[in-house]
Design a protein around this nucleic acid. Structure first.
Lengths: 96, 96
DNA sequence: ATAAATAAGTTTATTTGATAAACTATAATT
DNA sequence: AATTATAGTTTATCAAATAAACTTATTTAT
């Protein structure tokens, strides 16, 4: 049987966000915008969802008097990402 | 940048259907039901969508006077599946 | 003979989710 | 003091996944 795919990760944009975050120490809003090609609104929403799930940590501060949103992957997020990758493999490898 | 994920394949059930079909010569409705764990309604809808897209071929016949729906992957479906797998990899491998 | 149960799907309705458009707040520029 | 730019958030819309309800035909039981 196929393993369940975590619906929070089985979304193109959220997966892209997580994919970026798993490879860097931290990433700010604009960097994620650029890397994912998302719109600001969509990015904002999906960051919130990942944060609510405890998959990422979001730190809001100021840089040059401007708001700065910094994201960092959380242990729970790493775990979920790895589990998702494993689950996906059950769909991708062709077994008879 | 991340590659686009074919929305037709980036769906748990449709991906499961395609995953089964890519590994067998053909599969009937009940076999797909069993393998995917889907409900009949949901399976019916998703088979239709894959058929409409030309990803699979659906043959309706009768066995023991009962309707029999047989599915087979189409060349276009194999192509799309392979492209999807390649695209997915851009999300799963952690590059800095 | 007819009523109930089973089989194999399909259609419709609901609910969720992704996305963009519109909005907010602050800062810098003209 | 308007206008433009920056960095987001909130709201509205549209699509899509899913299950519930329905259909049609077939056995089986009464």
């Amino acid at each position: 049987m196929f393993e369940e795919l975590d619906p929070l990760l089985h979304s193109q944009l959220r997966l892209a966000i997580m994919s970026v975050l798993i490879s860097v120490e931290s990433a700010d809003f604009n960097y994620l915008l650029e890397r994912t090609g998302a719109t600001r609104g969509n990015l904002s929403v999906q960051i919130s969802k990942l944060n609510d799930a405890g998959y990422i940590q979001v730190i809001k501060s100021f840089r040059n008097k401007m708001p700065l949103t910094t994201c960092r992957i959380a242990p729970k997020g790493v775990e979920a990402f790895e589990k998702y990758v494993t689950a996906l493999k059950s769909y991708l490898t062709r077994q008879a």
